[in-house]
Design a protein around this nucleic acid. Structure first.
Length: 414
RNA sequence: GGGAGAGUGUCCCGAGUGGCAAAGGGGGGGGACUGUAAAUCCCCUGCUUUACGGCUUCGUAGGUUCGAGUCCUACCUCUCCCA
């Protein structure tokens, strides 16, 4: 493994965060003096970030831990345009209201990973709507547009993909890369930013920013990208049956988040420990050596650490305890998802399953029962007309509804 | 403006052509085997208070027909070629 002078690059490289860099030596020299001011942009396309953005968040985290300055850029402006990278369909254009709401949802999560403030080394947050929405079209064309070669833009992957597949690329999207490049330059001027990081799909956009900076006379800018994290099975990370693994607790509870990590594939455990926890590398090396059933211990550590980073130690411990009770004792832990229903009049099993979110319709619920997937208080159900009422409550005052081995929901009297 | 083509099960890709709740994949869920893993095998993957019943689905709206995803008309959206 390459040795760098800076803690920053050493840490990143040892933990597997580096995919490409525009100039390792130059960046290393800056980082060794703790003079890196780096930003990552997050577009406001959803009310919460999901685990797919976690690598980027961790990049900022390590940047700060190694003495440099992170900047979180909210894409309040760029989201109005829509990044075409890696998509063969246009994003739908979001309303300004949605963007604003999404932004508020996304912002919260950064405080868990970064220390914000106004002192040296403290993280800042800014929003590119601040400058992008004030741009004047003609000025923009003269000052910035003249530096962009359409020939080159057409050759960029994000554009080429659309053209090759004969999918539409609207002019608004075509401009995204110009805005992102401009952001980099603007941040260089405003905050002395000298590095932009991002996922490997952002490489082209970031390098454009470096070019623009040179032409517009900023200090030297750098690019660093992280690899796209896929599961060993090849699937994209962060999508499960129930949708994306959101980071905000109101969209995905700490228990469910813990479960996500607990269910990591064997082959991914070591890599994920490095990327998504802050455990020391020698400790990770030890955990990685566990084989066979013992690797479950490593998965628990991964789940605990990753959950603690996001939701705090208390929530992680509660999730772990609930998992232990539920899976190792077969009981029901307190942090299981809970749904309140009126049991006074009784409720049919089908409706109960739908209410609990374990089935999308009565028909779906019926199929699950026919397939032997459903248990009530750990007893298999074969009758889809079963009624649940207060007499079904177990000793803890709840009805434990299970679908398969992993999904459990507690029903309680409303 | 002229010409050619496309839009299918609301997760995706895709066959289909007068009898269709509509082939096949992928993805997803469940079961078996396990270690809350992977791989493998099996089942399921439109709604509906039983259903060989009813209803809703193939871009939208009409029409022909006993019957339309399939034929006709208009419209919408997208792609390509020419201007």
């Amino acid at each position: 493994m390459t040795h760098y002078k800076s803690d920053f690059l050493n840490t990143l490289s040892q933990r597997g965060y580096i995919h490409q860099c525009s100039d390792f030596e130059g960046l290393d020299a800056l980082a060794a003096q703790r003079k890196v001011v780096s930003y990552i942009g997050f577009d406001c396309t959803a009310p919460s970030l999901h685990v797919g953005s976690l690598v980027q968040i961790m990049l900022l985290h390590w940047l700060q831990q190694t003495g440099n300055t992170p900047i979180v850029l909210m894409g309040g402006g760029t989201t109005r345009v829509g990044d075409p990278s890696g998509r063969d369909e246009s994003r739908k254009i979001l309303s300004l209201e949605d963007i604003e709401n999404n932004k508020h949802g996304i912002q919260q999560v950064f405080a868990k990973f970064l220390k914000f403030g106004h002192g040296p080394g403290d993280a800042r947050m800014t929003d590119n709507a601040e400058w992008l929405t004030r741009l004047n079209w003609i000025e923009m064309l003269r000052d910035v547009g003249k530096h962009f070669s359409v020939n080159r833009m057409l050759a960029m992957d994000s554009v080429k993909l659309r053209l090759d597949r004969e999918h539409e690329l609207s002019f608004i999207e075509f401009n995204y890369m110009v805005l992102q490049a401009y952001d980099f330059v603007e941040l260089a001027k405003r905050h002395g930013t000298n590095l932009q990081m991002g996922g490997s799909d952002q490489w082209g956009n970031i390098v454009n920013g470096i070019d623009l900076g040179r032409r517009m006379g900023t200090h030297q800018l750098y690019a660093l990208t992280s690899p796209l994290i896929t599961l060993s099975s090849g699937a994209k990370m962060g999508k499960t049956a129930a949708g994306a693994v959101w980071l905000n607790a109101d969209m995905r509870s700490p228990y469910e988040y813990w479960q996500f990590w607990r269910n990591t594939e064997d082959a991914d455990v070591g890599r994920f420990l490095k990327l998504f926890t802050t455990l020391p590398l020698d400790e990770i090396a030890r955990l990685e050596k566990l084989a066979g059933a013992e690797i479950n211990e490593a998965k628990k550590v991964l789940a605990n650490e990753a959950t603690a980073l996001l939701h705090g130690h208390a929530a992680a411990a509660e999730a772990a305890e609930t998992a232990r009770k539920t899976f190792e004792e077969g009981a029901a832990g307190a942090a299981l998802p809970t749904v309140n229903v009126d049991l006074g009049a009784g409720i049919g099993i089908l409706q109960a399953l739908v209410a609990a979110g374990l089935a999308s319709s009565n028909g779906d619920a019926k199929r699950s029962i026919a397939g032997g997937a459903i248990k009530v208080n750990d007893e298999a159900v074969s009758n889809d007309k079963l009624m649940l009422d207060k007499s079904t409550l177990n000793a803890d005052g709840a009805i434990k509804l299970s679908m398969g081995k992993k999904k459990h929901v507690l029903l309680k009297q409303a």
